[in-house]
Design a protein around this nucleic acid. Structure first.
Lengths: 235, 235, 235, 235
DNA sequence: GATGAATGAGTTTTCATTCAT
DNA sequence: GATGAATGAAAACTCATTCAT
């Protein structure tokens, strides 16, 4: 349940990099070049969006030839899906790991919430999410996978944590998964949605995130906290 | 605070309709034709997205000539922005009006929450939001305006309601705006975000929305409810 | 049997040209523009062949824009097939009509044979046949149609003529269709095949054609001629 | 007149094989590898045609590297011309040899005619001829050479035979070369041309060839046969 | 004032050829 | 000497926009 399971995704991603640095790579199998292309694609797509970015933009940003891109990726869509798959996994891994730390509930939720909110609301990630959302109509599978390995997995992990806390008598939530979903939503309440539609409010986000997460934790504990978990609540 | 302020938007909308109903309209000044074009644009853009829909698609759906479209709208982007502005206002008006009704707090929040959630998560509105979000990079102003007259206005109205309830001693929220933002987020917790990334879960949404709104109301009242507003809570 | 039946071909060709010169044509329906494009396509394809000629070559030769070509023809293949269909019918009509003339058999065969041979071995027609033959693998239907309305129809008409001559006692061919096929082949014996593979032998063709047709007629009449048809044969 | 004269061709073919069989070949000088490449090229070009077959198709079919191909052949055109030169000679050798056999005229012409017709109208050879003909515009030399060592040589050999028969009193042709050309044309009358433009008429060809050759022989002998060569003719 | 045929810049993708390994 | 990854020019085709009718 805690093991990472990236293998559930059809997009295997990088071909097995030889342990011993091979002198010559098979066509489309040089991980460095693949990464270079993905990096250029990230720059081009994040700046302009999927449709507005041309393969020429990608080529220029990646510093490779057009032909080379097509050796590594069958077409523009496949390149984009590979890019999303690549960033996605990296993105959520660190955040989830915070739930494994040995900390009091309040501190753990706060650290997790802030980390999650910071990631999801950072400029690049917001741009990426906008593009993915904008592309869902044409690439439904990609959106589903993004949701599954991102938000959905968060829900699972957090629900498990809540259940453990219930068993330990520190929480009285009647529906752990609902509570998990609500908490995830609350940690970026007002920020994530706004960022999806609006440009960054210069410098505001960090303070807002701290306030928002603190409020989310308080709301949760005030509603469902028991025993030591209620410490510090006025009531 | 409750006054409608559409005039803050640069998109004036319909050109000044002549006071005296002219028999003949100036170029690009026939409101019926304008509406006809917007209707066609809505169909075309909702079905295919901004980039994938061609002006030919719009023309066909609207049943006018290409030239006419360009008389009413300077280019594709302006047409799209006008379309979004047009739908946007209609969309939020009804929902907000529910907050004016004379009902007990719990019922009022439930009705408002369900209505809002149903609107925001309906297939067409989800599609529209995806397209707007996907277009934010290229049309930042449009996203800002959408957020301002949509979610942001919700926050304002709901915060005002909460303040009134605090004044009436039925709520003890320390930060009415934060609570408003949180409530808005909670009423579609787990549904809106998923729908942004995924196709509809056949038939699931309605039941999910009812459950989710009920849980949101309960969470809010359990944390901050006072007096009669706590009726029905076990604790 | 003698009526022209161009309607057997699926390629309807030119849309009905209004008797009264319309001021404005439907998209892709201006016969003059269509002819202009076909003329440019003819120049481009005849010079370079189907694959080697680019749509840019066609555009330049036709003096229209690329977009316009694609309004009139769905793609490169369709343009080419339309071109072939267009030239084909014109090409064979005159030749076949020679068989209807009221002349002694020997003269009729000679005139027909020379006309056919001249057409089939002229530079432009040879180029066209080369391109069609080279394209058969990719457009089998086009090759079949070319053969059907070209050589095959010749066989039919000539076989009918031979049958009439047999009935009139001037010919004793045991198999009129075989004789027709043989005669068609003989009138350009050695010339057509060579021209398919080789460039023009400066100035040789005309004399060669006359000699070849004379020899073909003599061979036929010597083998199967009866009565007056044998006049002038030494044996 | 009967000596092989491949030296008239500029395509020397295999580079000078070292007199002493070297253990190691110079670049582009290994005949086995050259043959292997040509074999792959044959497969690739016959299947797709000159333009549609890519050098990658050739490489795959040949099982060598791209670079190696370019060591043996300067470019795609040269490879194709070498391929055609290679197949060409093989193709006509056997057929011509039939003219050397010691058989009665009628039998000899029949065997020769059928063999020639079968070869020229077989699927692979038809495909090859289509490709060569389609490429004549871009590679005129190749077409010329094909005609010269193919049909043209046939004409020479057959004309020589006819002259011998005239001298022997068995034939009375006034123009042996013309008769030779005519006979060559007649043995595939109606079949070769049709096959150039159309796909195979399932199973028809063999019977048609036999009938056609018989008719060609009969026509020739009926017109010009003398003495024993007229045996079996009704007249 | 409305129309829609024409435009041509710009898109994605292919593939003959080269040259570092 | 062989290899095959990389190249980039060029291809077919699209579509937002204009302007003569």
């Amino acid at each position: 349940m805690t093991a990472p399971d990236p293998e559930t995704d059809p997009e295997a991603g990088t071909p097995p990099a030889d342990a011993a640095p091979a002198r010559r790579h098979a066509a489309g199998a040089d991980p460095a070049k693949r990464a270079q292309i993905l990096e250029g694609a990230a720059r081009a797509f994040l700046e302009k969006g999927f449709d507005a970015a041309s393969m020429e933009d990608v080529r220029r940003a990646a510093g490779v030839s057009k032909g080379t891109i097509y050796v590594y990726f069958a077409d523009k869509v496949e390149l984009f899906e590979a890019l999303v798959a690549d960033k996605r996994d990296r993105m959520f891994a660190d955040v989830i790991s915070l739930l494994e730390e040995d900390l009091p509930l309040r501190a753990k939720l706060t650290r997790f919430g802030e980390a999650l909110s910071r990631v999801l609301c950072s400029e690049d990630v917001i741009r990426a999410q906008r593009i993915v959302i904008g592309a869902v109509a044409r690439m439904p599978g990609m959106g589903e996978r993004f949701y599954r390995v991102g938000p959905s997995r968060m829900h699972d992990r957090l629900a498990a944590l809540f259940e453990a806390e219930v068993a330990a008598g520190r929480l009285a939530v009647p529906d752990a998964r609902m509570a998990a979903v609500q908490f995830i939503e609350l940690v970026s309440a007002g920020v994530w949605r706004r960022r999806l539609f609006c440009g960054p409010h210069a410098g505001v986000e960090e303070a807002e995130i701290v306030r928002t997460v603190a409020s989310a934790v308080e709301l949760l504990l005030r509603a469902w906290g028991r025993g030591e978990a209620r410490q510090g609540l006025d009531d």
